[in-house]
Design a protein around this nucleic acid. Structure first.
Lengths: 66, 66
DNA sequence: ACTTTAAGTAAAGCTAACTTTACATTAAGT
DNA sequence: ACTTAATGTAAAGTTAGCTTTACTTAAAGT
C-alpha cells in the first residue's frame, strides 16, 4: 500500500526520529513505513492522521493490491 | 478501539459468513472484530470501508486508548 | 423431536507489524 | 580532517492480527 508519510513529514518539518517519538513507535518503524516495507496497524494510521491533521485516506492509498 | 461493524453489517443484511467471504477473511476474524477482541489491519479497514461504502473513520472510533 | 442457520467460544499455529541493537553512509558545520 | 545529524540496512526477537479446526448454543422451520 502506498503512502505519503515522507512527504507529509517533510511538510511538517519533522525528522524520522521526531515523528517516531510523537507516534510512540521506533524510528525503524517510520523508516519501514516510508519505504513501504509493510503496512501500519489501524491504530498507527489513526495516530498519523491525527498528527498530520488529515484523514487516513489522505495518507494511505489503497489499491486493491492485497 | 470501538467499531460499528455489527451495526453496518446488519444494515446491509449480511451474515458474518457472507461478510467474511467478501473480505476474504475467516468468519472468526469477523466475530473477533465485532467483539472488539483486536483491531484490524489497515487493509481490512479499507476493505470494510469499501464494502460499507463509507470512510474508515465512520466505522472505527479511535479514542486514544492505545 | 429433528435439522438447519447464525452466532459464539477455545486453543494451537502462522505471519506480518513492530522493537531493539549495531553498524554504514551522506551532507553540513566547524 | 573531524564531528554531528539524519537516513539507511540487517538481523534476531516479541506480539498482535488472522487462520483453522472442533465443539457449543439459541432461534426458526418442518
Amino acid at each position: 500500500m502506498k503512502n505519503r508519510i515522507k512527504e507529509l513529514r517533510a511538510k511538517k518539518d519533522l525528522t524520522q526520529d521526531q515523528l517516531a517519538e510523537k507516534l510512540e513507535v521506533s524510528r525503524q518503524t517510520i523508516i519501514s513505513l516510508e519505504r513501504e516495507r509493510y503496512n501500519p496497524s489501524i491504530i498507527l494510521a489513526f495516530k498519523l492522521a491525527q498528527i498530520f491533521n488529515c484523514k487516513i485516506e489522505d495518507i494511505f492509498i489503497y489499491e486493491e493490491e492485497k
